[in-house]
């Protein structure tokens, strides 16, 4: 069971209090009706699934209830950093990538 740092509770909490919520920074268009089918399908169904650092959403559902974002290394399954919803994706120091 992972420990996840909740940026709102400002502490590490056990994974079972959280729920994964898919890839981060996939914003809904302000007016989806302006999008063509292909762009909309891209939004609905296509996700990056990288090997390595992945930005993803979590919710501290059995805690403060907040959605937030995390960078997780999909190779090591380590959560590298978490940050609040709406914040820009943080730059990682170089060694974090290689771990």
């Amino acid at each position: 069971m992972l420990l996840i740092h909740c940026p709102y509770c400002a502490m590490e909490r056990p994974e079972i209090e959280f729920r994964h919520a898919g890839e981060a920074h996939v914003a809904r268009a302000p007016d989806p009706s302006q999008l063509d089918d292909e762009t909309w399908a891209e939004f609905l169904y296509f996700r990056s699934n990288p090997k390595g650092v992945h930005a993803e959403r979590w919710r501290h559902v059995h805690g403060c209830g907040r959605f937030f974002n995390a960078l997780r290394d999909t190779v090591s399954d380590r959560l590298l950093v978490t940050y609040k919803a709406g914040e820009v994706r943080p730059e990682l120091p170089p060694q974090e990538h290689s771990r």
Partner: peptide, 13 residues
């Protein structure tokens, strides 16, 4: 409720 919170917190804060 989870879905509503999601939109409220992340799309329409």
């Amino acid at each position: 409720l989870n879905m509503m919170e999601d939109y409220l917190q992340t799309e329409w804060p």
